[in-house]
């Protein structure tokens, strides 16, 4: 009996399988961009074979629902929801940003995750970690970099260490080091990456609750409502809404 975690929201394709107690049995990560659709299944197959497991041995799924690459995150979410549906097992979605920060949960300070969302903006969130405890202090959102730095300055406490995580972390470190002179400022990861063992650890308590609280046979239905968290509308949709707002505004004048 085992649990599965998968994240494809970043250029890292990440898979992990644990036992029922959440102990990782195998974890895999590759950074070959744009190959998630090709390799997610063969790697999963390989991992199960190494562990002498069948897909039917998986009893619960945790999936990173983004934010991140639209196309990327859809691959993991589709994989996970169809997997859970077909096996009629519980599934939960977790923030990919939170999963990235969760890698540093045994540190002490705040973890600021920032992934490039183009046009000087980032998918971002801040978490406070304290020797194993993990708490969100700035909710995930798509923000302009400058605005994110202002928010970060507001939530960080006196002398607290700041861990910067993400593909723009290095650049931001160089630009903002002087703003945070009174804090230890550390670039902890220069990539936008989620490793599935962290995603698994993050989602494990919620998945356990769900597995214990529901009747068997109900679970597959959860898969149907699971969707990626894009944090923004499709461009065409945003433009359309903008236009419509404009035209209704004129009508009311």
């Amino acid at each position: 009996m085992a649990l599965l975690a998968i994240d494809t929201a970043t250029p890292t394709l990440a898979l992990a399988v644990s036992d029922d107690d959440g102990h990782v049995l195998a974890a895999f990560a590759s950074r070959i961009p744009k190959m998630h659709a090709t390799y997610a299944h063969p790697l999963m197959d390989e991992m199960l074979a190494v562990l002498s497991l069948e897909p039917q041995d998986i009893r619960g799924v945790i999936v990173g629902v983004g934010p991140g690459s639209y196309t990327g995150v859809r691959i993991g979410v589709t994989f996970a929801k169809v997997f859970a549906y077909a096996l009629d097992i519980p599934i939960i979605g977790e923030s990919s940003l939170a999963a990235a920060a969760f890698a540093l949960r045994t540190h002490c300070g705040v973890v600021a995750v920032m992934w490039d969302a183009r046009r000087k903006s980032v998918y971002s969130a801040v978490y406070r970690v304290q020797y194993g405890t993990f708490q969100e202090v700035l909710a995930e959102g798509k923000r302009e970099i400058a605005a994110f730095m202002t928010s970060l300055a507001q939530v960080v406490q006196k002398d607290e260490a700041i861990y910067l995580v993400g593909d723009v972390a290095k650049a931001i470190y160089e630009q903002y080091a002087s703003t945070f002179l009174l804090h230890p400022l550390i670039v902890a990861d220069e990539t936008a990456s989620v490793y599935a063992e962290h995603l698994l650890a993050l989602g494990y308590p919620e998945l356990c609750t769900k597995m214990q609280s529901r009747e068997v046979g109900d679970h597959g239905k959860d898969a149907h409502v699971l969707v990626p968290r894009y944090l923004q509308l499709a461009e065409a949709e945003a433009r359309w809404l903008e236009k419509r707002r404009g035209s209704t505004g004129n009508e009311s004048e």
Binding site: R74, K81, V82, Y85, G220, V227, A236
Partner: peptide, 18 residues
């Protein structure tokens, strides 16, 4: 619109198969 289409597919796929 491709992005709108892709988003809808993810929402529908398991329901349609079921």
């Amino acid at each position: 619109v491709p992005e709108v289409a892709s988003r809808a597919h993810v929402e529908q796929i398991s329901l349609v198969v079921d």
